[in-house]
Amino acid sequence: MTTTLDKTEGLGPAVAGAAPYITATFRIRRFNPEVAEEAAWEDFEIEIDPKERVLDALHKIKWEMDGTLTFRRSCAHGICGSDAMRINGRNRLACKTLIKDINPEKPITVEAIKGLTVLKDLVVDMEPFFQAYRDVMPFLVTTGNEPTRERLQSAEDRERFDDTTKCILCAACTSSCPVFWNDGQYFGPAAIVNAHRFIFDSRDEAGEQRLEILNDRDGVWRCRTTFNCTDACPRGIEVTKAIQEVKRALITRRF
């Protein structure tokens, strides 16, 4: 062997030295209707480097202990929105949560996000969530002839909706919202965030239509400003602020 690449093994600790493994207990809410009608908690004890992600722990359990443990994931670094779940009672992405940051001395609880039907273990039915998103016309609407080159937009106008372009549709916000838990008809914060993204885009011409959609019985007025959504958002989007801006636009009709 001539290369020096043999030192790249393992996800490994971020700081070299003896691997400071700990024993952690993951208490996972299991549900598989093919096996049992009721959901139940199950404990898994694993040895793991606390600087690894909760997703790494779930993989370790799935790959080494119980292959039936089921969850969604893809990118493993907080960009695809697959793995929102309730970890120690708070909505987070498993791939963006390091074990050391969630008090691993005590059992770490992991369960599916709330308000959407659980299909198996940590997998929920995302359809109602995406339907609410699709209902707010989440696409640019313009009229008239297209320009030959790009549409112009000042840096300030672009900045106006920058925050809400970051959304990865993970549903952490919507499934942390008490209004949504009680009434699945509510559009939920994520749909409003994505409406905001277009309402405040200077190039768009369908703001009025989207505002009317959100003026509905199940629209923005249901929001009780609990800030759960803002706390839950793994992209750091000021969700509550975006909802407030939409409410204000509905009152003033200026955006």
Binding site: E34, V35, G67, T68, T70, K120, V123
Partner: peptide, 11 residues
Amino acid sequence: VQDKGKRFNTD
């Protein structure tokens, strides 16, 4: 594989 089921069998 350990998971022999039909539903969401990511295993």
